[in-house]
Simulated assay, not measured.
Amino acid sequence: MAKNSLINGSIWEQYSQKVQDRMNNPRYMGEITEEEAKARGGKLVVADFGAESCGDAVRLYWLIDPKTDRILDAKFKSFGCGTAIASSDTMAELCIGKTVDQAVKITNLDVEHAMRDTPDEPAVPPQKMHCSVMAYDVIKQAAANYKGVDPAHFEDEIIVCDCARVSLGTIKEVIRLNDLHTVEEITQYTKAGAFCKSCVRPGGHEEKDYYLVDILKQTREEMERERLQAQAEASAATSAKAGAEMSFEQLNLIGKFKAVEGVLD
């Protein structure tokens, strides 16, 4: 049965040809056994990660040269939709040949860009972007297993937008530096909220601890308080300067007392 008879053909048009190819013919699906790792002189690392939002799960196998920390081979098993399979397959390919420290820097955006047919056309529809996030998270888990640390070790800040891996600190900084006033501007500058949109406001694909609408409101309020404080300090400094320029005879009793104190000090 043709795929257009199963679902509307326009849906398939939102997936790149690379994604469709990897859905049907993944190149790195499988597993690496302890026996194989030993025969090839490498260390086997196995990591699991599941996405609560959609119920998908992925298992990643790394074969690592312990002398160089370089990933000699990578395989995966995926329990999820076709997009999860395509993302995991691409992720495994991106890992091969990199050191563990290099691999952990692979983001979900790197995975999504690698699946594009052309640089300017997204590989998957926005609501499926979270599948590439799962591929990113399992890399962190594998690196953590290899190094004996917690996966949080690889996160510098609180992540607000999982799809674009944009942190709370980055969003606040961009709002301040560029004097942003709308969520659309935040998305334009950072890509946060451009995909599944769960981080934009409550009620999206999944529940979040931080939302762009709230971050924008709070940051703008902080900026306004800081502006008013700076104005007040500037006004006080101007008044103090004007007072200092007055002659001793022009000062009132309190002013003369403070002037004498200043001289004594």
Rank of each mutant, 00 (worst) to 15 (best):
E206R: 09
A152P: 02
T99D: 04
F248A: 09
A194M: 12
A2H: 14
A192M: 07
P26F: 03
A194H: 07
P122D: 03
E221P: 00
V166N: 01
T190K: 05
G80K: 04
P122C: 02
S247P: 00
H153C: 04
V138R: 03
A152W: 13
D137Y: 03
C131I: 12
E36G: 11
D137I: 08
A47Q: 01
C196V: 05
A84W: 01
E35I: 14
V200L: 09
D56Y: 00
L94M: 12
T68L: 09
S53I: 06
K98V: 05
F79H: 07
I215M: 09
E52W: 13
A237S: 11
E224Q: 09
H205L: 14
H205Y: 15
I106F: 01
E226L: 08
I139V: 14
M115V: 04
V174F: 03
G243I: 11
Q102D: 06
A192C: 05
T68H: 05
T99P: 00
P126I: 01
R22P: 05
C131T: 08
A86W: 04
S16I: 00
N252E: 06
G80N: 03
K128C: 10
A57G: 09
T187P: 09
F257N: 10
A123W: 07
E155V: 05
Q127H: 14
H130T: 10
R165E: 07
V46P: 00
D209K: 14
Q20V: 06
A39W: 10
D162C: 09
E112V: 10
